[in-house]
Amino acid sequence: MTAILNIARTEWRRIFLSPLAWAVLAVVQFITGFVFINLIAQYAAASADGSDLGVSDVVAGSLYGFATVLLLLIIPLMTMRLFAEERKTGSITLLFSAPVSLTEIVLGKFLGVLGFIAVVVVLMALMPLSLAWSTDMDWGRVAAGLVGLFLLMMAFAAAGLFVSSLTREPTIAAVASFGLLLVIWLSNILAYNDSVPFKEVFSYLSLIDHFESLRRGVFATADVVYYFLFSALFLWLTVLRLDIERN
């Protein structure tokens, strides 16, 4: 356990020592902030017309719904280096010759990225928080949205970690994880096609459908379990992949 935490701490530190993390956070914050202000302005205009939407619907619903697309783009950038760069520079040998198991290495790296994701979630939480002084927010709703974002990013990160373990080129890892995530994301379009057999399965497997209920403020165990299973699957695949590398 100490080994996992040690690796996670160093990974988290290295993420924030790279300008990439700050650039990504800045861009994400700028774009979501821009969308946030737009949504608020729209909401203000709509409420004058007597709309029954709450402000929490706008923030947690629309803003976080939009954020998922942005996060799909940036999480591959954050996970691309995890193994690919270490392999390229040869520093992976440090981990492989240390008395730590592959599972500990993978979990440590994963926790390190989760630390970054936690920071993104905090930034996402700041926007509704800024409204707290002027209006009553439905905090449960906002929290469900944030939990959803965290779980979604966790799943993205696990897949990205796996793809990063397949190659030694960080850019290839980024492109490939983006592609992989998008395919899993879009698998729900098959569900709209009646001629596809087992179409419900594809809808169920899609990354984004499980976010919908959380976005609407419904905390369903099935969706949470889906994200955990999804992450566990890719972490396990990563361990397998690293084990193959030694053989």
Partner: peptide, 22 residues
């Protein structure tokens, strides 16, 4: 290839290695 992390200081890096090796 020395398995070093260029973005860490020598102390941080060695501290990390020491931790890894228990």
């Amino acid at each position: 290839q020395p398995p070093v992390y260029p973005e860490l200081t020598v102390d941080e890096y060695l501290g990390y290695c020491a931790g890894l090796h228990g």
